[in-house]
Design a protein around this nucleic acid. Structure first.
Lengths: 84, 84
DNA sequence: TAGATATTTAGACAAATGTCTAAATATTAT
DNA sequence: ATAATATTTAGACATTTGTCTAAATATCTA
């Protein structure tokens, strides 16, 4: 739960998730969407991966990232448990 | 949205919200639930307040804090928009 | 085998964060 | 008025975070 909230606590990482919702993207494609260096994006992707919010698969020299929405159920449940 | 995720990104603040869900509490009562100093708790409460996750009302020399769950709808919606 | 491309790792650095103690402010009670 | 209680503000400090450049690793292509 800690890793999850931590991963969501950054506008760039949240933006990355929004993009991955539309379609899978390579690390490079993701980097091109932002005005920060590739290593910085790589770091953000690692944090998303640690939270299990994204998965990655090597495709030749590329690495394709995809979103994993099942983890979001935990956040959802946590929030709902507060509201009621 | 930034303040919201920031506020939720701390186990103590999340714990405070859980307690406030049960009943309103004074700053002192909240502090007694944790093993950190009162100024630290005061700081956490300020961050929750900035996110509008809690409200406070002065009752004599006490300050009573209460949870505000309506803001959570925004988080909820954000997460749901990712899943679908 | 070289050279080009894609991505990550390593290391540095400034800014943000969470904690503390000491002091300030406000209210209540003697 | 004075003292006690409740809380916040101020300032210091160590840790974490987000960014960068340079270098390392892996894959593809000529």
């Amino acid at each position: 739960m800690n890793n999850l909230f931590k991963a969501l606590n950054d506008p760039i990482r949240r933006e990355i998730l929004k993009h991955l919702r539309e379609k899978d993207l390579t690390a490079g494609e993701i980097a091109d969407l932002f005005h920060i260096s590739k290593p910085s994006i790589s770091h953000h992707l690692e944090i998303l991966r640690q939270a299990d919010l994204v998965g990655s698969e090597k495709k030749g020299q590329f690495i394709v990232y995809s979103i994993n929405t099942t983890v979001l159920d935990d956040v959802l449940e946590w929030i709902l448990s507060l509201r009621k």
